[in-house]
Amino acid sequence: GAQSRSCQDEAVVNSSVLQRRMSEIASRTPNIQNIHTEAVKLLACAAETRLKDLVEKLSTVVCHRMVNYRE
């Protein structure tokens, strides 16, 4: 059936760079010779989720800093 994906077409993570980076890291583990394309897509989405979470936290910190400044 049809699958839904949460990430946008134009992702924050550069997939070709991510793919290269994943191959570099995977080559350090003995016996791992292939990386499935779905694994790259999943990690790109997960990295975007992590970034959104970080940016939201940063936004809270910035608001807090501005409140202190006004006082």
Binding site: R21, M22, I25, A26, I32, N34, E38, A47
Partner: peptide, 22 residues
């Protein structure tokens, strides 16, 4: 990315697979 890929490779190896999967 480093953390996730390194740990996931170990999981793939644990499955006795040579392919990192989603």
């Amino acid at each position: 990315i480093e953390n996730v890929v390194a740990a996931s490779c170990e999981l793939a190896r644990h499955r006795k697979s040579n392919t990192l999967e989603a």
